[in-house]
Design a protein around this nucleic acid. Sequence first.
DNA 1: GTTAGCATGTAAGGAGTTACATGATTTT
DNA 2: AAAATCATGTAACTCCTTACATGCTAAC
Lengths: 199, 199
Amino acid sequence: MARRGETLELAVLGLLHESPMHGYELRKQVNGVLGWSRLLSYGSLYPALKKMLRAGWIAEHVAAPEPGAGGRRQRIVYELTPAGDAEFQRLMADVGPSAWEDDTFDVRFAFFSRTDMEARLRILEGRRSRLQERLERVQRQLERTQRQVDRYATELQRHGVESVEREVRWLSELINAERGDGRPTGPGAASGSQDVQHQ
Amino acid sequence: MARRGETLELAVLGLLHESPMHGYELRKQVNGVLGWSRLLSYGSLYPALKKMLRAGWIAEHVAAPEPGAGGRRQRIVYELTPAGDAEFQRLMADVGPSAWEDDTFDVRFAFFSRTDMEARLRILEGRRSRLQERLERVQRQLERTQRQVDRYATELQRHGVESVEREVRWLSELINAERGDGRPTGPGAASGSQDVQHQ
DNA sequence: GTTAGCATGTAAGGAGTTACATGATTTT
DNA sequence: AAAATCATGTAACTCCTTACATGCTAAC
């Protein structure tokens, strides 16, 4: 049951899973690697780190201010504890609807290497049908409300629909690639764009 | 100075500008017309309406429960006051950076018919350079951090970049259309990207 | 000597969600 | 009789941002 707030938590856990890091660096990674549009603020990150420390998922240790490049002050390096690793596994094991919601999906996807193919497929397919539902809902509304007098409102909607359709295609390619990788000469999934995307 | 919270306000003002509506209907319009992914909740909308009532921007009147289709209870219909119309104009007149932020841009765009071409161009161009900055930042990061061991993280970033590039192209087309509509055979703006960037 | 980037934090507040509370009317 | 849809609202809570507070080192 991954609530909304567990997204940042998962991101931190996943990044520390790769290597220990201090807060400032962690923030840049969260922004960069996870392609978040709005830069995560320190007012968000540091309290989250404190909370995770208290929960015993991460451990801190003060690193010497190595005189390399840039003005280095004493940094606090965080690393994953065994409990933190367990928590990461627990969160990643959730393949229910919450795993394919808008805010969480990207983070899950970024750490897909740490899940098995079955979980990946379930999440990708869940995400896809979620988007398809959205598409149907919007298109139904487009027909229902005939008030298409306004070109800008119409154009906005058209662009929105196209964006979602594009993402559905992307997901379909990923799903095919997953299945293709599973069975090298798969007979069912071999229609054209089999593994186009997978890298 | 359109702060984050003024987005819902602007949406309501804009929709009531077209015609009076009650809350339930307003919510559907906000969700549908403005293509919002997450459905706006009543816990958000009704307090906002109360606030706008107190501010004098909208007026309420109880409508008789006309026995048409659907279970109709007594509805509260809201309509724009002259003060509300003024506020709408004031908000729409803001062509500064806040007008092209992620959460606000869509709403502004939906009501573009109520602005002049100059304001439209300024906002479209502002939005475009904002996205281009984002693109550069991500691409710089992609080069800097060589840790591209993970195919999923890489794929996520690739898709993200492509999405933003696609939106930049969309904005460019809209900008061209605006200029084309303004001066049917415009001689000045015809040199490719003459004033593309100018913020 | 001042600006820019590195680095860590706290306090206050904003914007929205979820869950709760209520109740009418129409369709199945 | 139950379920679905219409319709309005409140209270508690969550997550996040902004602004503030501090101070180091490197480059200009």
